[in-house]
């Protein structure tokens, strides 16, 4: 018995070693390096290992950094709100109203996620550009004579692309909670004299809140950490998001300590947000199937934080 058990235990250890090693090397260590770097001092453009808090001092002392962080949060908030406004009704339709081709429609919403992010961002360039589809259409209909330059290379273009890219992320958790609401609950509500609107207001909406929180956290954290859409579509405002700042601090200015400090601040914000979202989901999580959505949420969030 014991002779067969010990090799099996080694096998199990080996089996666990791979993911543990993976997480350590690719996630924990980089975060530790990042954290350490934010306390290093830059002397004449050279990275030294003297510990200092001046990176944080400069970060909070220079208006640029807090302002950019707040501005990014504002953009992310607006993107989140727009995504929610699109995703909730769509998820509701998919979950309750569509009967035939339901999976097909769901796939139609999800499939864009399989298309490369860059392709989707470039697609907006093609649509919004000077020679783009939208300008062409507006001119051919006769609404405008000259192509509009304002469409592309503005924060609006960035937000449009971000909404497009992150709406499916908002939709998925909302759809999942709506699907999990037993039809008998809606029936019980109408049986107890509630109108359709009252049933939505008092039963469906409260029960879907965990999904809403999960979806909004997705959209907010991912778009706050985004730096590709601003580069491709932001034009003069291309450095408008905090992640772009981080990219240039690391890549152009070679000020790794300051870049690391900004990253740590963003990471802290993200983790705080995730913890709050998780608390909310826990409170409302006694939903129909007691289903919790924070596991996939936090799993996917790491990527958003990594953008930073």
């Amino acid at each position: 018995m014991s002779a067969t058990r010990s090799p099996r235990r080694y096998g199990r250890l080996l089996f666990a070693a791979l993911p543990i090693g993976w997480v350590t090397v690719l996630l924990l260590l980089p975060y530790l390096f990042l954290f350490a770097h934010s306390f290093f001092r830059l002397v004449d453009g050279q990275l030294t290992h003297q510990l200092t808090l001046e990176n944080y001092g400069r970060l909070f002392g220079t208006a640029l950094y807090p302002n950019t962080i707040l501005f990014s949060a504002g953009i992310a908030a607006r993107v989140t709100l727009a995504s929610l406004c699109l995703a909730y009704p769509l998820a509701y339709l998919l979950a309750f109203k569509v009967r035939r081709h339901k999976n097909l429609l769901y796939m139609a919403v999800i499939i864009p996620l399989w298309v490369s992010y860059l392709v989707r961002a470039y697609a907006w360039k093609i649509i919004l550009g000077q020679e783009g589809v939208l300008n062409g259409f507006l001119m051919s209909v006769g609404i405008i004579r000259e192509p509009l330059a304002v469409l592309l290379y503005s924060k609006w273009a960035v937000m449009l692309a971000l909404v497009h890219i992150y709406t499916p992320f908002t939709l998925m958790p909302i759809y999942a909670v709506l699907e999990a609401i037993p039809p008998a609950l809606k029936e019980a509500s109408t049986d107890l004299y509630a109108s359709r609107w009252q049933t939505f207001r008092h039963v469906v909406l409260p029960l879907s809140l965990p999904g809403v929180v999960a979806g909004c956290t997705f959209a907010f954290v991912l778009s706050m950490g985004d730096f590709i859409a601003p580069i491709l579509l932001g034009g003069n405002d291309s450095a408008l998001m905090v992640s772009n700042l981080v990219v240039s601090l690391f890549g152009v200015a070679f000020n790794w300590p300051l870049g690391a400090a900004v990253s740590v601040v963003m990471l802290t914000m993200t983790v705080t947000l995730l913890t709050m979202a998780r608390k909310l989901e826990d409170r409302w999580g006694g939903g129909p199937a007691g289903r919790r959505l924070d596991a996939p949420t936090t799993g996917g969030m790491g990527r958003g934080a990594l953008h930073a």
């Binding site: 037993p182 008998a184 609950l185 029936e187 019980a188 509500s189 049986d191 107890l192 008092h202 039963v203 409260p206 029960l207 409302w284 006694g286 939903g287 129909p288």
Partner: peptide
Amino acid sequence: LNTVFQQYALFPH
């Protein structure tokens, strides 16, 4: 009229 449902269908929240 009112119904008592098979799995009770109580509002969990």
